Amino acid sequence: VTTYKLVINGKTLKGETTTKAVDAETAEKAFKQYANDNGVDAVWTYDDATKTFTVTEMV
């Protein structure tokens, strides 16, 4: 189990959160659900070296 981080650069929601998951795909599903629940529709990137997902909402 690995800890993954999500950085949110949204128009109305900004911040960071983490989740523990067995792999990046599982973490991504959890983070996308979190973003969807909070109304963030954005572009996703992932950095495997830092285990960090970044979501940037387009203006």
Rank of each mutant, 00 (worst) to 15 (best):
23 D>T: 05
27 A>Q: 00
44 W>D: 00
41 D>L: 11
2 T>P: 05
10 G>K: 08
33 Q>W: 05
15 G>D: 09
2 T>K: 10
51 K>V: 02
52 T>L: 02
5 K>E: 02
42 A>R: 05
40 V>P: 06
59 V>S: 11
52 T>Y: 01
26 T>F: 04
51 K>A: 04
5 K>Y: 14
18 T>A: 05
1 V>T: 10
13 L>S: 07
26 T>H: 09
21 A>G: 03
41 D>T: 09
6 L>W: 03
27 A>T: 01
15 G>C: 15
52 T>D: 00
19 T>S: 04
7 V>A: 03
20 K>I: 13
14 K>L: 10
7 V>W: 03
34 Y>H: 04
44 W>I: 04
53 F>I: 03
47 D>I: 03
37 D>M: 15
58 M>E: 11
25 E>H: 09
19 T>V: 14
42 A>Y: 14
40 V>R: 06
48 D>F: 06
30 A>Q: 11
43 V>G: 04
51 K>T: 02
7 V>T: 03
52 T>G: 00
8 I>F: 13
57 E>H: 08
3 T>C: 13
40 V>E: 05
17 T>Q: 09
19 T>C: 14
35 A>H: 08
36 N>W: 15
1 V>S: 08
46 Y>W: 02
25 E>Y: 11
4 Y>R: 01
1 V>A: 09
42 A>T: 07
38 N>D: 06
39 G>R: 05
58 M>C: 13
20 K>D: 12
5 K>L: 07
9 N>G: 04
24 A>L: 09
43 V>Y: 10
56 T>H: 07
55 V>T: 04
27 A>F: 02
50 T>Q: 04
5 K>Q: 04
15 G>Y: 15
1 V>M: 14
5 K>H: 11
52 T>N: 00
11 K>F: 13
47 D>C: 08
3 T>M: 10
13 L>I: 12
2 T>A: 09
5 K>A: 03
30 A>C: 13
44 W>Y: 02
44 W>K: 00
50 T>A: 05
41 D>R: 09
58 M>N: 10
47 D>Y: 02
53 F>Q: 00
33 Q>F: 06
34 Y>I: 09
54 T>W: 11
8 I>N: 01
42 A>D: 05
39 G>K: 07
51 K>L: 06
